[in-house]
Simulated assay, not measured.
Amino acid sequence: MATEFASVLSAPPSGRHRCLVIDHQRYAQAVILRNRPVPWHDAVAYANFFNQAQDLLKPDFTLFDIGAMYEFLIDSDETLVKAMSARSRTGYALKTLLQDEDAAARVRDVVSVLSQTAAAPLALRVPSPLGWLARTHVLSGAGSVHDLTADHAENSSMYMADWLRRLSELPVSLLLLDTRGEGSEHQLPTVDLAAYTPIANVTDHYRWTLGERTHDGVRIAGSSLTGVAIPQDYWRDESATAPAGDFLIADIPPDAVPETVLAQLARLT
């Protein structure tokens, strides 16, 4: 059974006063793997790598980046890319990707092993529906991001909602839609979280907390709670201070010095 998000906030497993969510994928690859490839292909090897980072950094969630694993699967499977490119209709590539049984099974296996071996509650990060649509639309050769409008977000969210049901048996506490690719500077329109109602219906049904990962931090759907992003420079400068917020989220830069990272972590009591 999943630990409720509110319970983690009120009593962080690390013993900190404020909950800390860490996206350590890039940092752990640099420090633990010494920039060798992430072992996405082997669920046990990936869990071992991931948990080394968890033991070192002691975050209050096990944050898994589903979008990054799908990027690996796309890069390593020409047949999948060809299937995604079979039609030029907007949304076809994303729908094909999310309906691929082999890819979904491989993702589910990694997340399942991770959920069984990690000490902290499970959080999943996925691209926003519009962001994932844009990535697959361009990758498949169907067109450019300029073809897409906010109206495409709802159809994309329906594809993602169907796919999320494959994870129904996993103890997910928090689902984060990464909307950092949206906004005029990224050539995609900004989409209100309300447009992603099909996903919200799934998370409500499974009692997962739904959040939106923005450049500034995390917004929790239906709540005034906010997670504030720790600036990248915090991890490079021991004189830097952490921001205020109901909870904190960090993306540790891969070039950060490990001794400085540990010293700055110790200050987040």
Rank of each mutant, 00 (worst) to 15 (best):
A2K: 15
S7M: 06
V8A: 08
P12V: 05
R16W: 11
H17T: 13
H17A: 13
I22G: 01
H24R: 10
Q25V: 04
R34K: 14
D42P: 06
F49D: 03
N51D: 08
Q52W: 00
D60C: 06
D60E: 04
L63E: 02
F64R: 08
D65C: 02
D65A: 03
A68E: 11
A68R: 13
Y70F: 13
E71T: 12
T79I: 10
K82P: 00
M84G: 08
A86H: 05
S88H: 11
T90E: 06
E101L: 14
E101C: 05
V110C: 09
V111S: 01
S112W: 09
Q116M: 11
A118K: 12
A118L: 12
A119Q: 13
L122S: 06
L124R: 05
S128T: 04
A134E: 06
A134S: 10
S140R: 01
G141H: 07
S144D: 13
H146I: 14
L148P: 08
S157I: 07
L164S: 12
R165T: 14
E169Q: 08
S173F: 02
L175A: 00
L176M: 14
G181A: 06
G181L: 02
S184E: 12
E185F: 09
Q187D: 14
L193P: 05
Y196S: 08
V202G: 05
T203C: 05
Y206M: 13
Y206P: 03
R213F: 04
R219D: 15
S224T: 15
G227Q: 02
P231Y: 08
Q232P: 05
P243L: 13
A244H: 12
Q264V: 03
L265V: 03
L265M: 15
A266R: 13
